[in-house]
Deep mutational scan, measured.
Amino acid sequence: GATAVSEWTEYKTADGKTYYYNNRTDESTWEKPQELK
């Protein structure tokens, strides 16, 4: 099967917290998305 390329990108805020942003859905989350686990 084809490997899905994750749409999630990991970013850090100014105070060093990590969050994740999805370019396709324009969604952001503090929790690590399922695709990255």
Score class of each variant (00 low, 15 high):
1 G>H: 13
1 G>I: 14
1 G>D: 12
1 G>P: 14
1 G>W: 14
1 G>V: 14
1 G>Y: 13
1 G>K: 07
1 G>Q: 13
2 A>D: 12
2 A>M: 14
2 A>G: 13
2 A>R: 08
3 T>S: 14
3 T>W: 11
3 T>R: 06
3 T>N: 14
3 T>H: 12
3 T>C: 15
3 T>Y: 07
3 T>I: 13
4 A>W: 12
4 A>P: 14
4 A>V: 13
4 A>F: 10
4 A>D: 12
4 A>E: 13
4 A>M: 14
5 V>H: 12
5 V>R: 09
5 V>W: 13
5 V>F: 13
5 V>Q: 12
6 S>I: 08
6 S>V: 09
6 S>M: 09
6 S>H: 09
7 E>Q: 08
7 E>K: 03
7 E>D: 12
7 E>F: 07
7 E>N: 07
8 W>N: 00
8 W>T: 00
8 W>A: 00
8 W>S: 00
8 W>P: 01
8 W>E: 00
9 T>Q: 12
9 T>R: 11
9 T>E: 09
10 E>Q: 08
10 E>T: 08
10 E>Y: 04
10 E>P: 05
11 Y>P: 00
11 Y>T: 04
11 Y>M: 15
11 Y>W: 07
11 Y>I: 13
11 Y>E: 06
11 Y>S: 05
11 Y>F: 11
12 K>T: 12
12 K>Q: 10
12 K>F: 06
13 T>H: 04
13 T>A: 06
13 T>M: 06
13 T>L: 04
13 T>Q: 04
13 T>N: 08
14 A>P: 12
14 A>I: 11
14 A>V: 11
14 A>F: 04
14 A>S: 10
14 A>H: 10
15 D>Q: 06
15 D>M: 05
15 D>K: 03
15 D>V: 02
15 D>L: 04
15 D>Y: 05
16 G>I: 00
16 G>H: 02
16 G>L: 01
16 G>D: 03
16 G>W: 00
16 G>M: 00
17 K>D: 07
17 K>S: 06
17 K>W: 05
17 K>P: 00
17 K>H: 08
17 K>A: 06
17 K>Q: 10
17 K>F: 07
18 T>N: 05
18 T>G: 02
18 T>I: 13
18 T>S: 10
18 T>D: 03
18 T>E: 04
19 Y>F: 10
19 Y>H: 03
19 Y>S: 01
19 Y>E: 03
19 Y>W: 13
19 Y>V: 06
19 Y>A: 04
19 Y>P: 00
20 Y>M: 00
20 Y>C: 04
20 Y>Q: 00
20 Y>N: 00
20 Y>W: 15
20 Y>E: 00
21 Y>E: 02
21 Y>V: 10
21 Y>P: 01
21 Y>K: 10
21 Y>I: 07
21 Y>F: 06
21 Y>N: 03
21 Y>R: 09
21 Y>Q: 04
21 Y>G: 01
22 N>K: 02
22 N>F: 01
22 N>L: 01
22 N>C: 06
23 N>E: 11
23 N>G: 07
23 N>H: 15
23 N>W: 15
23 N>F: 11
24 R>I: 15
24 R>D: 05
24 R>V: 15
24 R>T: 10
24 R>H: 09
24 R>W: 13
24 R>A: 10
24 R>S: 10
25 T>L: 05
25 T>G: 01
25 T>Q: 03
25 T>N: 04
25 T>W: 03
25 T>K: 03
25 T>F: 03
25 T>P: 01
27 E>W: 03
27 E>H: 04
27 E>V: 09
27 E>R: 04
27 E>T: 08
27 E>Y: 04
28 S>V: 15
28 S>E: 10
28 S>T: 15
29 T>M: 08
29 T>I: 08
29 T>D: 03
29 T>W: 05
29 T>F: 08
29 T>Q: 11
29 T>R: 11
30 W>L: 09
30 W>V: 06
30 W>M: 10
30 W>G: 05
30 W>Y: 11
30 W>E: 09
30 W>P: 06
30 W>Q: 06
31 E>T: 11
31 E>W: 06
31 E>M: 06
31 E>V: 11
31 E>P: 01
31 E>K: 05
32 K>Y: 05
32 K>D: 04
32 K>V: 10
32 K>H: 05
32 K>M: 12
32 K>Q: 08
33 P>T: 02
33 P>V: 03
33 P>S: 01
33 P>G: 02
33 P>K: 01
33 P>R: 00
33 P>Y: 02
34 Q>L: 14
34 Q>Y: 11
34 Q>F: 12
34 Q>G: 11
34 Q>C: 14
34 Q>I: 13
34 Q>H: 11
35 E>D: 11
35 E>F: 07
35 E>V: 07
35 E>W: 06
35 E>N: 09
35 E>Y: 06
36 L>P: 05
36 L>F: 13
36 L>V: 06
36 L>M: 11
37 K>H: 12
37 K>D: 14
37 K>W: 15
37 K>M: 15
37 K>E: 14
